[in-house]
Measured scan of single mutants.
Amino acid sequence: MEVRTIKVFTTVDNINLHTQVVDMSMTYGQQFGPTYLDGADVTKIKPHNSHEGKTFYVLPNDDTLRVEAFEYYHTTDPSFLGRYMSALNHTKKWKYPQVNGLTSIKWADNNCYLATALLTLQQIELKFNPPALQDAYYRARAGEAANFCALILAYCNKTVGELGDVRETMSYLFQHANLDSCKRVLNVVCKTCGQQQTTLKGVEAVMYMGTLSYEQFKKGVQIPCTCGKQATKYLVQQESPFVMMSAPPAQYELKHGTFTCASEYTGNYQCGHYKHITSKETLYCIDGALLTKSSEYKGPITDVFYKENSYTTTIK
Rank of each mutant, 00 (worst) to 15 (best):
E308K: 06
V189S: 10
G29A: 07
K201Y: 15
K7W: 09
D38M: 10
P300C: 14
K233L: 15
Y306S: 02
I286L: 09
N187M: 14
L65V: 10
L283H: 04
S263E: 04
T35Q: 02
A146N: 00
K191P: 15
A136I: 03
F242A: 08
K95E: 15
F80D: 06
A69G: 08
N147H: 14
H276D: 01
K158I: 10
G202P: 01
G164M: 01
A115Y: 03
Y96E: 12
W94E: 06
K307A: 14
T43Q: 11
Q197H: 06
E162N: 01
K92N: 10
N100D: 08
F259D: 06
N309C: 13
G53Y: 11
P300H: 13
M209I: 15
K191W: 02
N111P: 02
D77R: 03
L121W: 04
A205R: 01
Q175A: 08
T43G: 13
A250K: 06
D41V: 11
V8T: 07
Y214F: 09
T282L: 08
Y274N: 06
Y155L: 07
L126Y: 06
Q238C: 04
I286D: 02
S294M: 15
T43K: 10
H48Y: 10
T278G: 10
A231H: 01
T55S: 12
I315H: 15
Y306R: 04
T27P: 13
C156F: 02
L118G: 05
T232K: 06
Q122W: 01
V12K: 08
S104A: 09
V67E: 11
M245V: 04
Q30M: 15
T19A: 14
L119G: 04
Y269W: 15
Q222A: 08
G143R: 02
V22L: 11
C190V: 02
L102I: 08
E281Q: 04
T260R: 09
F32T: 12
E308N: 04
M207Q: 07
L59Y: 15
N49G: 06
G33V: 06
F80Q: 04
T159N: 13
N100Y: 08
T35D: 07
L291K: 01
V8Y: 04
T116M: 06
K275W: 03
G257H: 00
L153R: 08
P60L: 09
K233T: 12
T314R: 15
N16Y: 06
Y297C: 03
N61A: 12
F217S: 04
V206K: 00
Y96M: 00
E215M: 02
Y57E: 09
T192E: 08
G33C: 06
V58A: 07
N309G: 10
T5N: 14
G143W: 01
A146Y: 04
G210I: 00
Y28N: 09
P248L: 08
H51P: 03
C227I: 01
V203S: 10
M170G: 03
F148C: 01
T314N: 15
Y311S: 07
E215L: 05
C227P: 00
N14C: 08
Y28V: 05
N147V: 08
C261V: 03
V221C: 05
S294I: 15
A108P: 09
T103G: 00
W107R: 05
D62H: 11
V160N: 00
V221E: 04
D23I: 12
M209Q: 15
Y72F: 08
V243H: 05
H276T: 00
H18N: 10
E296D: 15
H48G: 13
N157G: 07
M24E: 12
T313M: 15
H176F: 12
L254H: 03
T278Q: 08
T232A: 04
Y84P: 05
Y311E: 12
S171F: 15
E253F: 04
E52Q: 12
E168V: 15
S263W: 02
Y84E: 01
N14Q: 12
V304S: 01
D135N: 10
V21L: 14
P224V: 14
F56H: 04
C271Q: 12
V3C: 14
L291A: 15
E68I: 04
G194C: 00
L59E: 13
Y113T: 00
R167L: 04
Y172D: 11
L179F: 15
V166F: 01
Q175F: 03
T292G: 04
K255Y: 06
F56C: 09
T120C: 12
C261H: 05
H176C: 02
K127M: 10
F128M: 08
N89T: 09
L133K: 10
T192P: 04
S50C: 13
Y36C: 08
V12W: 02
T199K: 10
T314W: 11
A289P: 05
A150Y: 00
K233E: 10
E296N: 14
V304A: 01
T232C: 09
C225T: 03
K44A: 15
T64K: 13
P78L: 12
T64N: 10
T302Q: 04
V67Y: 15
V203R: 12
V304G: 00
L153I: 11
K219P: 02
I301P: 07
D38F: 09
Y311L: 05
D62C: 12
A145T: 01
V304W: 04
L290W: 10
D287F: 02
D38L: 09
T198H: 10
